[in-house]
């Protein structure tokens, strides 16, 4: 029983230490996708705790009851082959739990892979987010502006990120708005997010990409649409245009601070989109994604102009 107590006390100490802290980022969602994921996480933690408790309790029971020191010296344990009912329970209950979690999981998959619900017929804001060692470039094609290492987004409107990379595989992640997705050099991936309240969030590359990986972060600021429009206008008035030479300079490996440009690099350096990409129709896009990707390896090769 020493063992049980030691385990439980460690876990409780940890839990109390943590309860006093700020809420954990992933469990403090600020958008519908992150909320769905936090809900799934809490649900599975709850269910899994029950399993952990059952196993711990069974183990404790066996150890208390059947210790050699608790039994007479001449006790001979019986030969037990197994019992079909007991084993059916041991298989049946986990199967039920897995079926339940599978249903939740499949539903959530279709939710996080689609345009977030609850914003009426608002068109999503499309942002091309591309990474290069070790920076993020955000291109706003409709607004025709581009930023480096920071992202301004409107609240209460679906966001559609199209991700790709000038280099190693990276992963675009804003924990409080939703989970991550890879950005790769040979294919565009799409991540659907939305922010419900204004605020500043941490964004980063979550996938190891070499020396500068730890600092490969960006700042996200969510603001109401009106303010966002103001910011776009301001950028258009004050920022310099993004030239091809300038963009090549930006792609050089290293860390850069924030910067802002008018125009995007999409015009002179098109992203690796296949024939099926780039229509701007996000709903179809996500549903057909798996089918598209099979073809995309063939179809996008021509678009890769840049080489290191």
């Amino acid at each position: 029983m020493k063992m049980k107590r030691a385990f439980l006390s460690v876990i409780f100490v940890l839990a109390t230490v943590l309860a006093g802290c700020e809420p954990l980022m992933v469990l403090d969602p600020k958008g519908p996708q992150a909320e769905r994921q936090a809900h799934d996480i809490m649900l599975s933690i709850g269910l899994m705790s029950i399993i952990v408790i059952v196993v711990f309790a069974l183990l404790a029971f066996m150890l208390i009851k059947y210790r050699a020191s608790k039994q007479s010296k001449d006790y001979e344990p019986p030969h037990i082959e197994g019992n079909i009912i007991v084993e059916a329970i041991c298989v049946g209950i986990p199967i039920l739990i897995v079926i339940f979690l599978s249903i939740v999981s499949v539903k959530s998959n279709y939710i996080v892979e689609a345009k977030p619900e609850g914003y009426g017929d608002k068109e999503p804001l499309v942002v091309y987010a591309s990474s290069s060692n070790w920076k993020w470039h955000f291109s706003y094609p409709e607004e025709n502006i581009e930023t480096v290492n920071y992202l301004y987004i409107p609240t209460d409107r679906p966001l559609e990120f199209r991700l790709y990379s000038y280099g190693p595989i990276t992963s675009f992640w804003i924990p409080q708005l939703g989970g991550q997705k890879y950005a790769m050099s040979d294919m565009i991936t799409t991540l659907h997010l939305a922010a419900d309240s204004p605020g500043e969030f941490m964004g980063r590359n979550a996938n190891f990409s070499g020396k500068g990986f730890a600092e490969n972060t960006f700042e996200v600021t969510a603001m109401p649409q009106a303010k966002f429009d103001e910011w776009v206008d301001e950028v258009k008035e004050t920022a310099k245009p993004l030239t091809e030479e300038k963009f090549d300079e930006l792609l050089e490996p290293g860390h850069l601070g924030r910067s802002t440009y008018t125009g995007t690099h999409l015009k002179f350096l098109p992203p690796p989109e296949g024939h099926h990409h780039g229509s701007g129709n996000s709903d179809e896009h996500s549903e057909d994604e798996h089918a598209e990707h099979q073809q995309s390896s063939e179809s996008h090769k021509g678009s890769e102009h840049h080489s290191h």
Binding site: M3, F7, V26, A34, R36, Q37, A38, D40, I41, S44, I45, M48, I51, V52, V55, F56, L59, V98, L101, V104, S105, S108, N109, I111, V112, S171, W173, P175, G178, G179, Q180, K181, A206, N207, F208
Partner: peptide, 27 residues
């Protein structure tokens, strides 16, 4: 010691298996 510790490791594996939530656990 393996039985309880591995159970903790194992059930978190089930959690990771929920792919939508995995977007938050991955990496």
């Amino acid at each position: 010691l393996f039985i309880p510790l591995f159970t903790i490791g194992g059930v978190t594996g089930v959690m990771l298996g929920m792919s939508a939530a995995d977007y938050q656990y991955h990496n």
